[in-house]
């Protein structure tokens, strides 16, 4: 069952990248940017299909360009949600346009292409695709670890970080570029619409479980990988459940569990104090 090995190989790299990037996105309250990037990935992929060049090239070009644009346009690398929303609402409209262009111009093409772009096809990866995804994931994780310390400083206390000579703006832009690359890569596995689950849920869980940043970073990354593995196994055991659904459902369940645990814990510690 080599397709399962491919899914595990690619999925591990992608999930690790999502976990680590997602933690910073949540910490910087930029999940909406991740949301926007995931939809841009959809438009990029469909543009690539419509004009007949490589899917991966289209994905990366679109997400990284928009990520850098968002980073550069906004004041201090954090633009307004309304501006992001306006731009990506139009991007989605363009996606609908490319979808029609693709389905009408290539009548021989398969009608499910848009579905697989939207919802992923992790069981359909070739050896070469899986290896590339794993390497890209590893590269993103390495780059994130490299900038983790100054980025954390810039995130938690921007003014002090800037005063201490940390290049806050540059870091914000580089980080968004990496987030764009992550979105492009993850779109191939879980699909452009569902990658938000891998970005937001493990990171949200980690943030509920610990206040300490490095521990949170490790938990978020580990959880994302574990939840992806569990999703793949669940989908393998129950073939009528699509893998993307299994992964996101398990990540959501983990988050829900952490919410309940943290509420119970808070109530319990309050009653002890009383």
């Amino acid at each position: 069952m080599t397709f399962m090995q491919h899914a595990f190989l690619a999925g591990t790299g992608i999930a690790a990248a999502c976990g680590i990037v997602g933690y910073f996105l949540v910490l910087r309250a930029q999940v909406f940017t991740g949301d926007a990037l995931s939809h841009v990935a959809f438009t990029g992929a469909l543009a690539a299909l419509a004009f007949g060049f490589g899917l991966r090239a289209g994905l990366f070009a679109a997400t990284i360009a928009v990520a850098l644009g968002i980073g550069l346009l906004g004041r201090r690398g954090r633009p307004d949600d309304v501006v992001i929303g306006t731009v990506f609402a139009w991007t989605l409209g363009l996606g609908a346009f490319f979808l029609t262009l693709y389905t009408t111009s290539r009548s021989a093409g398969n009608g499910t292409a848009s579905i697989s772009v939207l919802f992923g096809s992790i069981f359909g990866l070739s050896t070469e695709q899986a290896t590339t995804a794993a390497w890209l994931g590893a590269g993103i994780v390495a780059a994130m670890l490299l900038i983790a310390r100054p980025l954390l400083f810039a995130t938690l206390d921007e003014a002090v970080a800037a005063a201490r000579g940390v290049p806050v703006r540059l870091l914000g832009v580089v980080f968004l570029g990496l987030a764009g690359a992550t979105a492009a890569e993850a779109a191939q596995a879980v699909g452009s619409l569902l990658l938000l689950g891998l970005i937001a849920a493990p990171a949200g869980t980690a943030l509920l479980l610990t206040d300490r940043p490095y521990r949170g970073l490790a938990i978020s990354t580990g959880l994302a990988v574990a939840e992806l593995w569990a999703g793949l196994l669940l989908s393998d055991a129950a073939p009528s459940v699509p893998p993307s659904f299994a992964i996101v459902a398990i990540a959501t369940a983990g988050y829900l569990l952490a919410v309940v645990m943290s509420r119970v814990h808070r109530r319990w510690s309050l009653s002890v104090v009383k």
Partner: peptide
Amino acid sequence: RAQESALTGTVQAFALACGLLFVSLYKGFL
């Protein structure tokens, strides 16, 4: 805000995943 945005994102992704499940359970709906 950080927690709130993580929650919103998770709700959204889970809702979409449910949509995918419904679509794949209801064959011929593509």
